[in-house]
Design a protein around this nucleic acid. Structure first.
Length: 640
DNA sequence: GAGCACTGC
């Protein structure tokens, strides 16, 4: 937006006239607009309406080196547009040296090099691998502070926990220093920054420190690209960062600490050269940089759930996704798995074409199961309630739990609990907030993130607009929330789990162990339901289900017939108890369906056939679940 | 009895 504003001033016109911008919740453009700044996500959505982007003559893809999911999908689409339209020009700008790769992808197009406007940065490596990078970073800060000329310091750490430890350790060292010298040391202002930090504390890194103190900013990789602080002359780089990986076979996300790429390390170093010649202290060896770090980060498209991408490309009539021209193709298994997921949800038919449900789903900027949940809400007459839940699931967790007030905040959270469902708990939170006029101070009092709730409200209103356009009425079930659980079940039965022990479940289909998280409203209840569905499975200390809802087993059979059917067991005993007990089993039905689709597919579409084949393999040899390696405890050493 | 790098629609 700020770029659009500057350019419109330059062109002496109102913002939104000749020069405008569009981001998710805002479109400031008009009939006169000739230059439009927008995010890659907005452009990608526009391709749904206009696959050839007829209203544009030139598209400039900026920051292409960041390789966001949307940018990578757009590359494939734009390549086709360039081939189809003679009157269309594409310019790609990238900050890294792999321009040749972009050029090759688009058919050896010319490359122009524009020198950067930054100062040189002197890079210093560790002589030997460091055992503990928090400790090493603290020592380096002290050494800079004592002996180097004025200039602020930026440290890269992997996450919130480490940042807090580092800040604490630095302030301790400062106290020691003053005690030993028996006088005040030069002041040092220690400032943490990460995305979950409340905004007022975030803003501090941009303010001038009190009394002209040197600032020491301890950051996640939010400071690598998302925000830029001037005045930094010293960067301390641990060489690590957290990266999220999706495992399609287990249907699980894991956030783990990995060495960053050489490109990322260079980007971090560059942060020292914005105000003047700077220095970057790398807490790893030069040999680690040369031999152990990847040249570039693994592009997002290769490590993420592709449900959205597949749905979008299918609606652009891409017939065989396995042949789609990706610059770096995602693992085939990810594509096939996402297609299978969409087939299970009823968004793709047996030959891999979009169904009418799928066409409705693609309109919503949501992950496919969430879009399906919304549409099920329509069928079950509880759109209003599901809409809120879907919006709450589209933002980071709204529960605020500061370390020093853990018990207090837990108690506050428990007040919102709906015992049988975390989803309904989210609905409850939103409704209470609404009752209190969407007030910010009310959020603070109840340990809720205002930012998150406000975002949820924005998402909700955007989705409501789309519902209106699709002529879907805003039905409500009032206080009968059982039907809402059914809507949740209809979109998440692939994430159904059966009770196995205390707080311990197994995924009904894969046998994958899944645990209730202690923060769940179902945790520590006197009873635990026999069947639940969960929003997602995340590997941390254990495989934890995030956001869990109790479901009736009959629903699973009714809504997920390709996986489940009801088998009466021990009928006589059950009659005695006058209670029908049902047992869910992974049924042959899935196999039949898959085989049928395979036969049908052989004629028509190749990709769905491959889905069927792969699924068959998986079902026959139920994937032996491999215990994950020692999970993400921070490895504080690069190389072995 | 325990977790969250970062965007984006």
């Amino acid at each position: 937006m700020s770029v659009a504003k500057r350019v419109s001033e330059e062109m002496e016109c109102e913002l939104g006239d000749k020069v405008g911008y569009a981001i998710r919740f805002e479109d400031v453009t008009g009939p006169n607009t000739i230059i439009k700044y927008m995010t890659d996500g907005v452009l990608l959505r526009e391709t749904l309406r206009e696959p050839d982007l007829d209203q544009y003559n030139v598209v400039i893809m900026d920051e292409a080196h960041e390789r966001s999911l949307n940018t990578d999908v757009l590359f494939g689409i734009l390549k086709q547009v360039v081939a189809r339209r003679r009157d269309f020009k594409l310019i790609v700008t990238s900050a890294t040296l792999n321009a040749q790769k972009f050029s090759n992808f688009f058919g050896s197009v010319p490359v122009f090099r524009i020198p950067g406007r930054t100062f040189p940065v002197n890079i210093l490596y560790s002589k030997s691998p460091c055992e503990d990078y928090v400790d090493a970073a603290v020592k380096q800060v002290m050494s800079i502070h004592i002996s180097c000329p004025p200039g602020d310091i930026l440290i890269f750490m992997t996450g919130q926990d480490e940042i807090e430890c580092t800040c604490f350790a630095i302030s301790e060292r400062m106290e020691q220093l003053e005690a030993n010298a028996r006088k005040a040391a030069a002041p040092l202002s220690i400032l943490p920054i990460y995305s979950q930090l409340p905004s007022d504390l975030q803003a501090k890194i941009f303010q001038k420190a009190e009394g002209g103190a040197r600032k020491c900013i301890v950051a996640t990789n939010i400071a690598e690209t998302s925000l830029t602080v001037d005045g930094i002359l010293y960067v301390i780089d641990t060489g690590y960062g957290k990266i999220k990986f999706y495992n399609p076979r287990m249907g699980m996300d894991a956030l783990q600490v990995f060495p960053v790429s050489r490109a990322a390390a260079d980007q971090r170093a560059g942060r020292a050269g914005r105000t003047g010649p700077g220095t970057c202290y790398r807490l790893f060896t030069e040999s680690a940089y040369q031999n152990e770090m990847l040249p570039n980060p693994v592009p997002e498209i290769q490590r993420t759930n592709l449900g959205n991408v597949v749905l979008l490309l299918k609606s652009l009539n891409v017939e065989n996704l396995l042949d789609f021209d990706f610059m770096d193709p995602p693992p085939q298994e990810n594509i096939l798995n996402s297609m299978y997921q969409l087939w299970v949800l009823g968004a793709l038919d047996n030959v891999g074409r979009l169904t009418s449900l799928g066409r409705k789903m693609v309109e919503f900027p949501l992950d496919p199961p969430l879009a399906k949940m919304l549409l099920s809400g329509d069928e079950l007459h509880c759109v209003n309630e599901v809409l809120t839940i879907v919006s709450m699931l589209s933002v980071p967790s709204v529960f605020f739990r500061p370390k020093d007030r853990a018990e207090e905040s837990d108690a506050a959270r428990e007040k919102f609990f709906v015992p049988e469902s975390d989803h309904l708990t989210l609905l409850n939170v939103y409704l209470r907030w609404k009752e209190n006029q969407y007030r910010g101070d009310w959020c603070n009092d109840h340990f809720l993130h205002v930012k998150g709730l406000r975002k949820a409200r924005e998402v909700r209103s955007q989705l409501l607009d789309i519902l209106k356009m699709q002529k879907i009425p805003l039905s409500t079930c009032g206080s009968d929330w059982d039907v809402v659980r059914k809507a949740i079940c209809s979109a998440y039965f692939h994430n159904a789990a059966r009770l196995k022990g205390v707080g311990e479940y197994v995924n009904c289909r894969t046998g994958m162990p899944c645990h209730l998280h202690p923060s769940s409203s179902l945790y520590g209840l006197g009873y635990t339901p026999d069947y639940v569905v969960y929003h997602e499975l995340v590997l941390t200390a254990k495989e934890y289900m995030q956001c869990v809802t109790a479901v009736e087993p009959q629903w699973l059979a009714e809504l997920g017939p390709m996986f489940f059917s009801i088998k009466d067991s021990h009928t006589s005993r059950l009659e005695q108890r006058r209670k029908q007990k049902v047992e869910m089993t992974v049924m042959e039905k899935e196999m039949e369906e898959v085989r049928r689709s395979q036969a049908e597919t052989a004629r028509k579409s190749r990709d769905m056939e491959q889905v069927a084949r792969i699924k068959e393999r998986q079902v026959i040899s139920t994937p032996g679940y491999r215990q994950p390696g020692t999970p993400s405890r921070t490895p504080r050493r690069l190389g072995l």
